[in-house]
Each structure stands twice: as structure tokens, then as C-alpha cells.
Amino acid sequence: MRPWVNGFSVNPIFYSVYLQKITDMAQSNIMPGFRPAISFTLVYLALIVLIPLSAMLLKTFELSFDEYWAILTNARVQASFRISFGAALIAAFVAGVFGFIIAWSLVRYNFPGKRLFDALIDLPFALPTAVAGIVLATIYEPRGWIGKIVMDTLDVQIAYKPLGIVFALIFIGLPFVVRTIEPVLQEFDTAMEEAAASLGATRWQAFVKVILPNILPATITGVALAFARGVGEYGSVIFIAGNMPYISEIVPLLIITKLEQYDYAGATAIGLTMLILSFLLLLLINGLQWWVRRRSGQL
């Protein structure tokens, strides 16, 4: 029998060497259950991640490179990429700042209703995104509760504009930031702050020079997660975005539009590009994180 992995034929010699290696590792490892665990991991990875992504790749290969390039350089597609990535980036940074403050308050201070507040943080995880989108749109639309106030005082419209997308993505991204910073802040050795004070540092200096550098890697992770989630977010955005081509149309919506027009190859072409861009950005963020950790002696 020829072993097949992910639809690609694998050199049988390589495969047997690989199997031998896994067997060796199983025998030399003290931890039991290596073989079932690694088998499960590989099967899971193949079924849930690699096969669907490969299928998308193969579907895109139905297009010639020129056709692919034409889809990508289409002005409407390019605008939607700018909006999706731009809004996600801004939202992730804003969520980073607010998330840090919220995590700080939850860890450092005691106040009535703290546990309830703590539980509320996870709400965007659990809430159906469409519900969140409708609620946000209702409140922030020009005649909505908050939208009207902002419209009257600042003359700024939030809903049905790119700003609305940013608002929705902040909402979605916040728990990622809070939940990544919280445990790190909890573990932070407060004796370091006392040490800084005993050496004559003001509280601000202690915060900037001692606390912040120790929390920064976790904050970057939180922002990266919020960003990754924001780029792909669909449900909560489409209700508040207004979905005007060239202005407030996000990439996921464009993919849906292409699918509704039976342009499957076009949809996968955009999807693949998004995948590659997201992957590159995550690599970049991981690199940044590695650099921060290394610079701060945590590696």
C-alpha cells in the first residue's frame, strides 16, 4: 500500500524512516501515551487544518497566475484588504491599551462587583457575533443612544463608516488582550516594584521601567490574537460597517459576495491571499515578541 499524506504521495523510504523515528521516540520516552497522542495530533491536524487549506490552495490553482493577479489588483479587492487589515490593526492596538488597563484594574484593585465584571470580559467570546453586531449598530448608528450624542457633539458618525468596523473589532478583540495579560500580571513579583521604590524610583518610573517591560511580551501576544481574530471577523462587522464598496467593505464580505456569484476560484484566490498575509503578519509579530523577550532577558 502506498502511504498517502494530505493528498500528496510521500516517498516510501522517507515514510518508513519517519515511522522508525516515531517508534524510537516512543521507546525512549518515559511519558506514556506518546504514540496515541502523536497519532491523534497528526490526524487532527490533517483533517481540520491541512486538508481544508490544501483544498483551498488546489482550488486556487484552477486560475492562471495572470487571472489570480487580476483578481488581486482589482481596486475594490485592494480597498477591502486595506480596510480589513487597517481596521483590525487599529482595533488591536486600542484593545491592547484598554485591555491592559482593564487587566491591571482586575488584578491590582478590589472593588465591588469585581467578579461580575471579570465574568463580563468573556462575553464577546460567548455572544453570537451577529447579535453583538446588531447591538453595536443599533447603539452607534447616527440616531442610536451613543451615536446620536457623538454625532451632535463631535459631528462624527460611527456606524456605517470604517470607524464602526474598528469599534466592532475592539469589542471582539478586548477579551483576548485581557485574558493574556491577566495571568502574567498576577504572577508579577511585586517585590520588584518595592525594590524600585527602595532605590528611589517614583511610581511612574517603577511602572515604565519595571512593570511594563515585564508585561510587554504578554501584551504583544494579546494584541496579535486580537488582530488575527479581527482580520477574519465577519458576523459582528457586517451589521455596523455599512458595507459600501471601496469604503467600508471587509474582505470576508467580499469572499461571500464572490461565492454568491458562483465565483469559487475568485473567492479562494482572495481567501488564500488573506491566509498568506495573516501568516506573514503573525510571523512578524512572533519575531517581534522573540526580540522583546530576548532584549529583556526572558529567553
Partner: peptide
């Protein structure tokens, strides 16, 4: 002040 677990700045 020298702390029990030193409290050196890790970063």
C-alpha cells in the same frame, strides 16, 4: 533593601 528572593529586575 535586600529582598528575601532578591527581587532583581528580570528584564
Amino acid at each position: 533593601f535586600v529582598f528575601q528572593h532578591y527581587a532583581l529586575f528580570r528584564h
